[in-house]
Design a protein around this nucleic acid. Structure first.
Length: 197
DNA sequence: CGAATGATATACT
DNA sequence: GTATATCATTCGA
């Protein structure tokens, strides 16, 4: 395995990192069940300057604390009381940047994933941030895990090289409350997939 | 289209 | 301490 190391996460440009995460493999190993998926959709959240970010204006609470850590930590939180959303903390300590993983293509542990989803339709399985977490078994237990050292969750490099022309940049989803910042092209989609609209 | 569903932030007593 | 509004969503009608 080629796990991504600290130097990948601890860089200043969260938007660039979001783009580079496309094609990487997100892996979880929970209760002896190994599952993984290739990341095909991400969104960048640019910390204090971004109205859509939980850390906008430097707001630091028990929940957002992990975003202020150095890059390489997992930020998991519950949204709408139902869905666990998984983010990767980036940048240096004190700068609360993060990348939301919005879509994966299931890779390893397909039976386990199907069981977790309790659903047959495979084509839609890793699309949407709530589905990503459900497929890989991510929940609040994994909040603040260190992706560089953890034996439960990490991200692996792949030999995939995605050409720029296969990457679509669009505004982010579900952040209408963020005003002008909702229009920023901080969402990245790997177009190779038939599953993406 | 709208209900489901609970942690969290914020504003109170 | 308690109350209430607010969500980086999904699924099924």
């Amino acid at each position: 395995m080629m796990r991504l190391e600290a130097a990948f996460y601890q860089r200043p440009d969260v938007v660039q990192i979001a783009r580079e995460l496309l094609g990487k493999t997100l892996v979880t190993n929970l209760s002896g069940e190994l599952t993984s998926g290739i990341i095909c959709e991400t969104e960048a959240y640019a910390g204090v300057d971004d109205r859509a970010s939980h850390a906008f204006g430097g707001r630091r609470t028990a929940r957002t604390d992990v975003m202020f850590f150095e890059g390489g930590y997992a930020y998991v939180y519950l949204c709408y009381g139902i869905h666990n959303l998984f983010n990767v903390v980036t940048n240096y300590q004190g700068i609360p940047h993060a990348v939301l993983i919005r879509g994966i293509i299931p890779s390893d542990g397909l039976e386990i994933i199907a069981e977790r989803r309790n659903r047959k339709l495979f084509s839609k399985i890793g699309i949407g941030p709530g589905n990503v977490s459900k497929s890989l078994g991510i929940d609040l237990q994994l909040n603040q895990e260190n992706l560089i050292r953890s034996n439960k969750i990490w991200i692996e490099n792949s030999n995939l090289h995605i050409p720029l022309k296969d990457i679509l940049a669009t505004p982010r989803i579900g952040v209408d409350y963020a005003g002008e910042d909702a229009k920023l092209p901080y969402r990245f989609v790997w177009k190779n997939q038939a599953t993406i609209k």
